[in-house]
Computed example of a mutant assay.
Amino acid sequence: MKKIFSIVFLAAGIYAFSQQIESVETILSDKISIRALELYDHKVWYSGTDSKFGFIDLKDSKDQKQIKLSEEKLQFRTLGQDKTSFYAINIESPARFFKIDKKDLKSEIVFTDTAKTAFYDALHFVNGQLAYTFSDADKDNILKLATYKCGKWEMFKNNITLNPGEAAFAASNTNISSTKNYMWIATGGKASRILRLNFKNNEFEVFTTPFVQGESSQGMYSIDFYNDQFGVAVGGDYTKQDANINNIATTHDGGKTWQIQASGQNAGYSTCVKIKPGSKGKEMIAVGDRHISYSSDFGKTWKKISDEKGLFVAQWVNENSIVAAGNNRVVVLKLKF
């Protein structure tokens, strides 16, 4: 029996680490830094530096368009969408909420935050009628959250107090995730915690994590949830990108408790994690400034499948390919299983 089990586990191990990048196609080269992507109408849409916003058709990369949302050189690290429009918020103050019509790409500013501390780290649509975005806190250290309901933006009142030095990272627009019943926000810096909003009563719960934290550059950078119970978080320290201790964690109870995974056995700092559609949470990909990594066992073990550098954000296009972006490019990567 031991011999049979050994063969079975060996085969499983070979399968788990057989994934590799089959091809990398650059579909956009430009002087731009991109940290937010959306998929719509067989196109990848992006927002970035120098007020740039645009799309590339995934079927024909020659079909692409880019516009500037402002004559000012604004930096966009957020992007979201409902049925008719895209929304993007610049990171500096004043923070302007741009609405871009999907049909003609005409834009307008629909909300403005004039606070000097305004710095919006992520924008997430729960569905076509509901979205949330959060900013660095004001001097009172209260969680600063804006919500979009039925076409209107307004500030979300709450009494969640962040710790001194606790904030978030506008690294890939992915430190917010949601399911039907909950929304999660990942913080970092001096403290790296999970803030969970229950949609039934519109109240927050706050959970501590064992994630690396304590310095302004440390903590969770990205989260993704498969369902109400299972989720994954990645991050680390952007000043020490090879450091790989306590920088990946998973939860099986909706974010209440987190288990560190692959500590000391992963490729290091990551800015974005995405669960593969249809995998029920088992398969996922993570990108960092210096690597692309893959897990096929619910985030327990990871294999670096590419040394591609300068990528910050990714989305699954289908079960065999992802689109990723970062410094000066957007790429499509085909995976071989």
Rank of each mutant, 00 (worst) to 15 (best):
K200W: 02
N90P: 15
A167H: 14
K83M: 13
E154D: 02
D82Q: 11
I160P: 07
S177Y: 11
L145A: 03
K102T: 10
I160W: 06
N173M: 11
L130D: 01
K180C: 03
S107Y: 12
K144A: 00
A191I: 05
S107A: 10
N175I: 11
L143S: 06
V126F: 08
F119G: 03
F111L: 03
F199N: 05
K180A: 13
S192E: 14
K139G: 00
E72F: 06
R96M: 10
D121M: 07
K73A: 05
L130K: 13
D82H: 09
E154A: 09
V126D: 01
F98P: 02
D136C: 11
A122G: 14
K83H: 12
K102L: 12
F76H: 04
G128M: 05
K103S: 12
M155S: 04
A95N: 05
D121I: 05
F97R: 01
A115C: 01
V110D: 00
N158C: 04
Q75T: 13
I100F: 08
T179K: 07
A170P: 06
F169R: 01
G151E: 03
K152N: 02
G189Q: 10
N181G: 07
Y132R: 07
F86S: 06
T161M: 13
N198I: 00
K152S: 02
P94E: 03
D140V: 06
K83I: 11
I142Y: 10
L143T: 09
D136G: 13
L123P: 05
T179L: 04
K102S: 10
T117V: 06
L79F: 13
A95S: 13
S135H: 10
G189A: 10
R196L: 02
T84P: 03
A170C: 08
F169W: 13
M183C: 11
A146M: 06
K144D: 01
F98C: 02
E166F: 08
S178H: 12
P94K: 00
M155H: 07
E71P: 14
S135I: 10
E72P: 04
E108T: 07
A168W: 14
T112C: 00
S172L: 08
F98M: 01
K144Y: 07
A167V: 08
K103Y: 09
N181P: 03
T179M: 07
T187S: 15
D82A: 07
K83S: 12
K157Y: 04
N158Y: 04
N158K: 06
K144Q: 04
